[in-house]
Design a binder for these strands. Structure first.
Lengths: 112, 112
DNA sequence: CCAATAGTTCGATTATCATTGAAATATGGA
DNA sequence: TCCATATTTCAATGATAATCGAACTATTGG
């Protein structure tokens, strides 16, 4: 991941509403959430929400899919992983170290 | 980690110069870098650099220590880990999953 | 085709942030 | 003490971002 993409992604997350939206999507998992449901969970008004969802999508951290009248949004887990990896890349000059070793979630195999 | 701290940390990283500075600090490891050295590595002019270092420190992502004429800056690895954990917290609703499992650096024990 | 539901776009306003030269401060050595 | 080196503060400027009501588009069912 290049610097520019990382900055864009970080900027997308560096905002109250968008961080709340993104975390909701992460917690929802691969099934995603309809825009309306996100609004319900976060209390963000529709026009603002749409704006923020577009930002997240544009940053590559979320994707959308039309499903009838609804638009389903999903977290882009791979982009997220790339971002985390970028932030800690070559930690401590590549020498054996332990400062930064995040363990995001259960390492078990996906059940979906 | 609460939302506010996370937004502050993300905002601190969501900027070209600061991201470059932070990554340099991560790669430097626990020994840190003098401000001048960071300027040398990144090409950021002193006044700008000082501004950005203050932002990173204020966000809790870096710390500083006076050492003679120099000021040594270090990445705050623990804050970083908390941030990464916060972003992926309760991933997929806590169910066994694999979407987000970053492996930041060698899991071996620190040698420092 | 019409009404209802789901989301998005637009636009005007407000607020916040990045940049950097010049001046100030701090430290160490002769 | 005095100078050179290292870093920070100040202040003015320019640029970018957040907010949200109202109007618009899209889809479904009757």
């Amino acid at each position: 991941m290049e610097t520019k993409a990382a900055v864009t992604a970080l900027a997308a997350l560096a905002q109250d509403s968008r961080l709340a939206v993104f975390r909701a999507l992460v917690q929802a998992g691969p099934e995603g959430l309809a825009a309306g449901k996100i609004g319900e969970l976060t209390g963000i008004p529709p026009s603002s929400l749409s704006f923020h969802l577009k930002e997240l999508s544009h940053a590559g951290l979320a994707s959308s899919q039309q499903a009838g009248r609804f638009v389903i949004y999903r977290a882009e887990f791979e982009a997220m992983n790339h971002l985390l990896a970028f932030l800690t890349e070559n930690c401590c000059g590549g020498n054996p170290c332990s400062p930064v070793c995040s363990q995001a979630c259960s390492p078990s195999k996906a059940s979906t």
